[in-house]
Write a protein that binds this DNA or RNA. Structure first.
Lengths: 187, 187
DNA sequence: TTTATTTCTAAACAATCGTTTAGTTATTTT
DNA sequence: AAAATAACTAAACGATTGTTTAGAAATAAA
C-alpha cells in the first residue's frame, strides 16, 4: 500500500454526470471534465478507463439519482394515476437541477440515435423497453382495458415521454402541466 | 470570366443535407462532406464559407424539400383533419428516405438544444413558433373550441410532433399510426 | 494565341480531440 | 529511516478537427 486517492470516485462522477447532462457527450471534452471533476486526466483514466467509461458511470449515477422515483413507481398499484405521478416526478427532477436540461437518458437516446455505439444504444433500448413494460404492468391493473388497447397506450406513453423531455427543455412549468394533463386525457 | 464551376451548388447541397440528416451536424466531418458532395474542400469553402454555412444551406434545402407539404397544410381549411394529415405526411417523408432517421429539423433542434449557437437556435425557435401558429390557425376553424383550449392543444401538438420524430426513428409504421391516432383522440 | 481570371488538386495549417507517459510527491510497510 | 508502492502533476502523444494556401489546369476575353 501507498498513497491514497485524494478524491471519492462517486463524488467526481456525480460532477461529470452533471456536466454531461448540461452539454451532452460529444460536446463535453476531457479538458472540461478535468476542470469540473477537479482531478487530473491521469486520475480520471486510472479510475474510469476512458471517456466512454466516465460516461457509462455517469449514466449509472443518474439512474441511481432517479432510483427512488422509479422504485416508488414500480411499487405503486393505482394504475394510470401512478403513471401520471411518474410523469410529474420526471419533470420535478429537471426543475430541481436548473442548469441541466431535459432528461439525461432521453438526451443520450437522442444524441446516440444517429451514431453506432453498441453499448450505449443497447442500454438505451433496454431502458425504453423496461419503461414500456412498467407502463403495461400499470395499465393492466385496469380490468376495463383489453390487451390491444394496453399495448397501444403503453407505446403512446413512451413516445409522450419524449415529448415531455423536449418540453422540460424550453416550456414553462404551466405548459408542461397542461401537456401532461392532455396526454392522460387519452388513457 | 474564366473556368466554370464543375458542380451545381443545389445538387451538392442536397447531398450534404442527406449526410447531415443521417449523422447530425457534429458527427459529419469536412472529410465526409468532401467525399459525399464529390467536390474538393476548396470548392466547398468558396461556395458556402464554412461548415456552418453548408449546414444552413442544407436546412434551407430540407425546408424546400418539405415546402409542398407545408404549403398544402397552410392552404387547407378543414381544421383538425388537416393537422392530422400533416402529421401523416411528416412520417411519409421519413419513410421515403430509408437511411435518414427522424426529421432533420427536429434532430437539429435536439442536437443544438444543449449548445450555444445563436443562428441555428434562432431558426429552430422560429420554426417551432411558426408550427404552433399554424396549429392555432387550424384549431380556430372549430367554433366549439375556446381560446384557452386552442392554446393548450397547439402546445400539445408541437410536443407531440417531437414524440412523432422519435417514433420515426425506431418504431414500426403500425406503431406510428397508432400514436397519431391516439394523439388526435384528444383534439 | 496570348492574357487574365477562376476553379481545380493536394498539401499544409493551427487547434483541439482523447489518451499516454515520464517524473515527482506522498504514504504505507519493512 | 529505507524501500516499495500508488497517486499526483504536467507535458507530450498521434490522430483528427475545421480551415487556408500554393500552384497547376482550364476557360473566357483580348
Amino acid at each position: 500500500m501507498a498513497r491514497k486517492k485524494q478524491y471519492i470516485e462517486e463524488e467526481v462522477i456525480d460532477k461529470a454526470m452533471h456536466l454531461f447532462w448540461r452539454n451532452g457527450y460529444e460536446n463535453t471534452s476531457m479538458q472540461m471534465l478535468e476542470k469540473e471533476m477537479g482531478i487530473n486526466k491521469f486520475s480520471i483514466y486510472s479510475s474510469f478507463g476512458n471517456k466512454h467509461g466516465i460516461f457509462l458511470e455517469s449514466i449509472k449515477s443518474y439512474k441511481n439519482k432517479t432510483k427512488t422515483m422509479f422504485d416508488t413507481f414500480k411499487n405503486a398499484s393505482n394504475g394510470v394515476t401512478d403513471i401520471k405521478q411518474f410523469f410529474n416526478d420526471s419533470v420535478a427532477i429537471g426543475f430541481q437541477n436548473n442548469n441541466e436540461k431535459g432528461c439525461l437518458v432521453t438526451n443520450t437516446y437522442n444524441e446516440f440515435s444517429l451514431i453506432e455505439d453498441e453499448l450505449i444504444n443497447k442500454q438505451m433500448t433496454v431502458f425504453m423497453d423496461n419503461l414500456k413494460n412498467l407502463f403495461i404492468e400499470k395499465l393492466r391493473l385496469d380490468p376495463k382495458k383489453d390487451e390491444d388497447t394496453i399495448q397501444k397506450q403503453a407505446n403512446f406513453l413512451v413516445l409522450a415521454k419524449h415529448g415531455l423531455a423536449a418540453a422540460t427543455k424550453v416550456n414553462s412549468q404551466k405548459e408542461i402541466e397542461d401537456y401532461i394533463e392532455m396526454t392522460f386525457n387519452n388513457i
